[in-house]
Structure formats: C-alpha cells, structure tokens
Write a protein that binds this DNA or RNA. Structure first.
Lengths: 203, 203
DNA sequence: GATATATCGATATGCTTTTATCGATATATC
DNA sequence: GATATATCGATAAAAGCATATCGATATATC
C-alpha cells in the first residue's frame, strides 16, 4: 500500500462525507467539483485521490460509488476495529452512544471505570466494567484502540496501562498531552488547541 | 506581534498544561526538559518559545512563572471571549458545562435551539433560547465565537447564519466539513479524521 | 472524422515546518 | 579567575506540503 501523508489522511473523511451527501450518487464527479464544494484546491483533491483510487478519467472524473468504496476501504470503515473506553463519566458515556462510530468501523465493546457505582450492564448499550478487569478483557477481545475519558490527572497512568495490554492506538480526550513509547500512536483530542487557533484569528 | 505558525500555536497549550502540572512552579526550566517531558524535540520547543517569550537564558532556561504568563497572554486566556452554542442536544449541553472553557478564557453566554422544549433558564447555567433570537443576542452581547453542535444536515445553514451575524470564528462539532467566506475561520472538530489516523497506524 | 474542452496524472516550483549545527553566554566547579 | 558544561538563539539544511504548469486523453460538438 502506498503511504498517505497525515495531512491527506485527515482530508479523506471529508471527501467521503461530501460524496455521501450528494443527492445523486450514480455517475461521476471531478476533482474540481469536489474541491469547489469543499472550498479546497482542485490539485490537492486530485493528488489525494490519486493516492487511493487511480481510476480517474480525463473529462469525466471519478465514478462516485467506486470512490466512496475506495475511501471507505482505505479509512478502514469496511472492517471493524474493537475499542474500549476508559472513564464512564459524562464524556465517556456520550461517546459510548455516539452513533457515527459505527459508520467509521469503530466498535465500542465496553467501558471501564474505577468507580463501582458506574459499572452497569444495560441491554443495548456497552457494559461498564470495573477497571480491574481491563487487562483480561483486552486480551480476550482483540481490543485495538483505547479511548481515554478519565480526568486529566489519571490519564497518563491509564495510557500506560493500555500500552501494557498491547494496545497501540490511543485516543485521548483528557485535557493533557499523553505520550507513549515508539510504535504507539496517541491521538490527543485537544480542545485548547482549537480554541487557540480560533482566538488567535480573532486578534 | 510576531506571527506564530498554526502548528506551533497548537503546541502552545500543550506546553502550558505541562508547566501547570509541575509540582514546583518557582524557578526555571529548560526547553530540553520540557521537550523530554512531552516527547518532543528540544529545538522545536525552543523555537516555539522564542516566538512568544524571548527571555530564555543559557544554562538556566526560562522562568516558569513568566513563561506561563506569556503563554496565557498569547493564547488569550487572560482575556475573555464571548461564545454561544447552537444546538442544545447532548453534546451541546455537555460543552455548556465543560469546566475547562473558563480556564481558556472562553465564556459561553447562551445556547440556542430550534426545539422550544429545549429552551430553558436554569440559574447557574447558560440559558437556552429559541434560535430566532440568535441575531439580536449576537448583536447585543459582542459574541465572537459560535459553537455548532446541531445535526450534520443543519450545520452549514447554522454556520451561514452565524457569519451573517458578524461572527468570524466558528467551531464545528457536527460531522460535516463546513466552510465560509474568506475572513471567517472555521475549526472543524473532526472525529472521523482522528479515527482515520489511528486506524491507519494499526494497518 | 476533425476540433474543442474538461479533466487527469505527472513534474516542477515554492512555501512551510522540522531537524541539525554552531557560536555565544550564564552558571558551576576547581 | 580559568575551565567546563548546559543551554540559548540564530542560521542552515532537510523534509514535508501545497500550488502551479503542462502534456495526455476521454468525451462532446461541429
């Protein structure tokens, strides 16, 4: 597989959601049209798509359905990735029920919390287990992604614990910057950074 | 004011939270130490800090408290920016009560929703008004940032409406890519992109 | 069938960001 | 006071991204 640059990878889901929003998905679409619809440069779109599709035709563009398929495959939406949530507070439970995750191939198997009061097992929702069961659960269920929604001061230790249990992809919503050994990807969902960009623009 | 690159700007809040976590904030710290603590390169940290502080001394580093002050000033945490939330659903209400925003100088004045059932006015919480009152409220309250937490299909029209009301900084949590005319910054909080980066790393 | 046009893919240019290198300097040690 | 060391700031090199340009090609029009 060709290597896709991180920046391009971030744009692919944007293309995908744009294509899925189209009223008519039969027929073709050009990179120029996608770029116009999203407010991006046409060359950039073409280059990003060239990396994953390779079936663009001059004058006509790309077959929309094939492009959607290719994007979903590259983005892993067609396969299922198992994940767990650590921290069943307000944000954790909100994410547990976030309907879009299914579309993205992300399957939340369970959540974990130190507080026994939060542990529960409602039908139709992912169960919440005590944190002590994390290690066994990860080993038995091929968990690939750990989602951290604990308070800031506990986040790094939870992160370490996930890494110990062979989880190499971590998605952190706690307002701290986590890091882990090489080979482990940590995606820090940084609200403060977003605010910084916005307020910098205002001044 | 010197211009800070967007990437550097995203790192500044990370430095700030690292410094605030230190057990002892008196005394000095070197760029090398910060870099080590965060898993970044020392040159990068030094360069980022040079852009905002300019008071690093060889051998000793930076005065921690001064650095915190400088970071908070640059990031706008010392001044207050007024914001409104459009969409008082689950995510919207979660953000309304997100305690970190205060720290970041972001003041959520109110939320708006089309559903009258969601409109309310509880003491101690930001009020939720009908969407029809948005224009007047924005004009009267110096609102600078609009936070969008409506469903995907309504997000772009809400965005356009905010722009019409002279709001030039928009923070979008709906799972679509919004865009606006030049001069308006749109920060798309893209969950799908984060998942893409994680699952790409796994494969 | 010839011509025109939209669009692709590739190559090249320019810009931004990161990383490396090096002299200068503040403190510590002898 | 001389020497050693950690660290800064600046400059330079490298890498990564975005944008521009151009020939090639599929379709449409005459």
């Amino acid at each position: 597989m060709k290597c896709i640059s991180p920046n391009a990878l971030r744009r692919l889901p944007v293309y995908l959601s744009y294509l899925k929003q189209l009223p008519d998905r039969s027929g073709n679409i050009s990179a120029t049209a996608i770029a116009g619809g999203l407010g991006l440069g046409d060359v950039q779109v073409r280059k990003d798509l060239a990396g994953i599709s390779g079936e663009g035709k001059p004058k006509t563009g790309y077959n929309i359905q094939n492009l959607i398929d290719a994007l979903e495959t590259v983005l892993g939406y067609k396969s299922v990735t198992n994940a767990v949530i650590i921290g069943a507070g307000r944000l954790g439970t909100a994410l547990m029920e976030y309907p879009e995750f299914k579309e993205y191939g992300l399957h939340i198997l369970a959540a974990f919390d130190i507080d026994p009061e939060r542990c529960s097992s409602t039908p139709g929702k992912p169960p919440v287990y005590p944190l002590s069961q994390l290690a066994v659960f990860c080993r038995d269920n091929a968990v690939k992604i750990g989602i951290i929604t604990v308070p800031a001061d506990q986040a790094q230790s939870v992160c370490d614990r996930l890494v110990e249990n062979s989880i190499h992809a971590i998605w952190n919503f706690a307002p701290v910057h986590l890091h882990a050994k090489a080979g482990v990807t940590v995606q820090n969902e940084n609200m403060a950074a977003s605010i910084a960009l916005l307020s910098n623009h205002l001044s």
